[in-house]
Design a protein around this nucleic acid. Structure first.
Lengths: 304, 304
DNA sequence: TTGATTAATGAATTTCATTCATAATTATGC
DNA sequence: GCATAATTATGAATGAAATTCATTAATCAA
């Protein structure tokens, strides 16, 4: 018999175009999904996916079920928001601290959606640089911190969002453009263009350059576009999340290269007070982030 | 996490107003539903039902979820019909034999719905009396027989529909109106008004009167309304399904009495060729019967 | 070719819904 | 009132079924 888990699987299949990636998306093994698909197909006597070489394609029946899935899961979300309103834990505040400047890119549309769903919740961004953002949670002057992992504490919950790759960004004709992968020493003679934050907040420096004793010149800019302008104008190189620069790469304004053989990866978490995490609008906010990020940002990987 | 089974349970709860009856409706134990309900409530931190003395009442949260359930389950039905159309086993015929005349009452609206959902299927009623209706299935001159159980055969599937009670119907001022329960000998001096079918098709005669050596006069009429007219005009008494006479009882045209201490019950089945049963439109037809009968006919009980 | 990636399969395992047995609660008849 | 019947709630035991594990088969790129 059809169950919601099948519908969630179908959606993940359409979004990823592959059984193994869909499995990661729904936090199951590839085998589990394979069995699920087999079950659906046996139940309806119809194939829902077709092997297309390495990956897979949805059949007409599969598409019809995905259409169903989207409607149904959307309706469930709406209903669950209504339930949260019935339970009256509906007003409150959601003041967000961003450790990672680039995150503005994907956060904006999510905040817009959130504002519509929870008009009573006071939504705000806490601006400025903060050396210990977690302290803001305890102070009660912020509700969520979005950034990299912090050390575990009993009163704080770290909600894993996703893992993403940080790529080196170069001007198209840059001397290093022939290299597929950049190593630490390639940065020795470059100017590094970054957001205006301390060194220990920059993964490239912290994890790659400093351990190799390399200390390039630095120059800062507030906005992602500004950084990319400087890179394209040959003022230096930058290191940015793969999804933050996709548009610029596609238009050949700049080029991107992997850093180190395995690549330089970073994990993003949303941290809240344990107590805050139970509020329905906070849970909705976090699940919206995950849902839309996996749907819109390319090259990100589920965490934990 | 919410699953479709919870939604089905919620609907059954609303329709029956009781956990144990809802359990029967969805073919589970009362305990299973109790656990399910507990699960939903824990998940949302909200009660969905309220004990109202013996029975139960839905809370606002429960009502919201029922609303969701109806939308979602309806959409799934539509999608499944579409899948059946994709699989192309969509045309064919559904010729129905009715052993039980009263069944016209509930079958008509169902046929109308069915005709809209499956316009390509040739829908028909096979009229006239048939001594061995199952033979019509083998002949290929009918597709479904609706009636009481027949002996098991390998090539025939009997789909249980529901169990219903047959009540004696009397004129309001009939001499027997003081008795709450009628016994076999109460019928000795009465005229029995029935549909024009052989004795062995009339449960009252077969199961109650004949075993007690009682053979009342008989008179026949084609239509349920005609039978009830004769009863009200003191031409005799009848025995009809409880749901077939509800309207007339409510208007005090006639009165109804239980037959025998446990009551006289009859089981209704839909029989098809095993092969026919797998066609999607047949399965849809059968599930529609069950769904709408349980929703609209009072006093019927799930079978098997 | 080889190696890397992905999907499919069958068996083993784990999870979790259901049942069973029973207690608690409420209604009804006397 | 009390006894009895009917209903819901609960905890432990069960069992079905979903998931994982381990492996094979298929596809692609080098």
């Amino acid at each position: 018999m059809l169950e919601l888990r099948h519908l969630r699987t179908l959606i993940a299949l359409r979004e990823t175009g592959s059984v193994s990636r869909a499995a990661k998306r729904v936090h199951l093994t590839q085998s589990a999904l394979s069995h699920q698909i087999k079950g659906i197909q046996a139940h309806y006597g119809l194939p829902v996916i077709q092997r297309q070489g390495q990956s897979i394609k949805l059949t007409d029946a599969g598409k019809r079920l995905v259409f169903l899935a989207e409607k149904v899961l959307e309706e469930i979300q709406v209903a669950e928001r209504d339930l949260a309103k019935i339970s009256q834990q509906t007003s409150g505040s959601l003041r967000i601290v961003l450790e990672c400047h680039t995150c503005f890119d994907w956060l904006m549309p999510i905040m817009n959606v959130f504002r519509q769903h929870w008009p009573e919740v006071e939504l705000d961004l806490v601006s400025g640089f903060h050396s210990d953002p977690i302290k803001l949670l305890e102070d009660g002057s912020a509700d969520v911190v979005i950034g990299s992992e912090h050390k575990r504490r009993r009163d704080i919950t770290h909600h894993p969002l996703f893992r993403f790759e940080i790529l080196a960004v170069l001007a198209p004709e840059h001397a290093l453009h022939r290299k597929r992968i950049l190593q630490a020493d390639n940065f020795a003679d470059e100017t590094l263009i970054t957001y205006p934050v301390p060194e220990d907040r920059i993964d490239l420096i912290l994890k790659v350059l400093k351990p190799n004793g390399i200390h390039p010149k630095r120059r800062t800019a507030e906005l992602t576009v500004a950084i990319l302008q400087l890179v394209a104008s040959r003022r230096g190189v930058a290191a940015l999340p793969s999804w933050g620069i996709k548009n610029y790469i596609d238009h050949d304004y700049v080029i991107a290269r992997r850093i180190g053989n395995g690549g330089l990866w970073s994990d993003l978490y949303a941290s809240t007070l344990r107590e805050t995490a139970s509020r329905p609008y906070v849970r909705d906010f976090l699940s919206t982030i995950k849902k839309t990020c996996f749907a819109t940002l390319e090259g990100i990987v589920p965490l934990k």
